[in-house]
Design a binder for these strands. Structure first.
Ligand SMILES: [Mg+2]
Length: 222
DNA sequence: GCGACAG
DNA sequence: ATCTTGTCGC
């Protein structure tokens, strides 16, 4: 029962209606970063997912887990979640320290059908999620982005604001922040910036990427 | 029909 | 996404 791209698109349209664009949290003590690592140019193969839990606002690593499994779904722009979300969700179930917010490496509602991987994970798990992508899938920046860290401009698609283009480091390419689930764009942007130190990517996602890569290269089991 | 196109 | 050392710019 391998879901087809056509069925995947239909499912995205249904799940998109379940997204809540309001802050559904009160306190933020722990933030998780999730990402996936895979062998070069392997459409079919094993995917390693990593979840890094950081204390907030200290940003100290308090727990990290990984999980790996085979995949059959190829990478198709717009359908990334059907390839990466399964292993990520399984990894999340191994975590002891339940995160208040999850930041995913990819888009949230800044997606052709409003259901990028961050929203996909949010709707399926009920978690509060934020999308933080490294490049644009759809939309265009409203105007030129100033070079200073902390500056941001709206990401526009069909004349609507779907996210924010955020500069997380002086004179370095920005990241694209969007609502995943149960949070507002303003709060999501504020949190991503608060999670940023000396690198382009926010610490949760940066560390998850690093650990997923480490787990895969060292054939970590479990 | 053509071009764009997260990771 | 990943491969992979040195090298250029701030
Ligand atoms: Mg990734």
């Amino acid at each position: 029962m391998i879901i087809s791209p056509k069925e995947a698109i239909k499912l995205q349209k249904e799940l998109a209606d379940k997204i809540i664009e309001q802050n559904m949290f009160e306190k933020i003590d722990y933030i998780a970063g999730v990402d996936v690592s895979q062998p070069a140019f392997m459409q079919q193969g094993i995917l390693y997912a990593a979840v890094c839990i950081l204390s907030f606002p200290e940003l100290e690593l308090v727990e990290q887990v990984h999980h790996f499994q085979e995949t059959d779904f190829p990478y198709i722009p717009g359908l990334l979640a059907f390839r990466e979300a399964p292993v990520i969700i399984n990894a999340l179930e191994k975590v002891k320290t339940k995160p208040d917010i999850i930041i995913a490496d990819g888009h949230g509602i800044s997606h052709p059908r409003k259901l990028g991987i961050a929203s996909h994970i949010g709707v399926l798990t009920g978690h509060i999620t934020i999308g933080c992508a490294k490049s644009i899938l759809v939309g265009k920046p409203e105007k030129e982005l100033p070079p200073k860290k902390g500056s941001y401009v709206p990401l526009i698609y069909h004349n609507k604001i779907i996210g924010n283009v955020l500069r997380t480091k002086d004179k370095v390419n920005p990241v694209y922040v969007s609502i995943g689930n149960k949070i507002t764009l303003d709060k999501a942007t504020e949190i991503v910036l608060a999670c940023t130190t000396k690198y382009r990517l926010p610490e949760p996602t940066r560390l998850a990427h690093q650990y997923a890569n480490y787990a895969r290269k060292n054939n970590l089991k479990s």
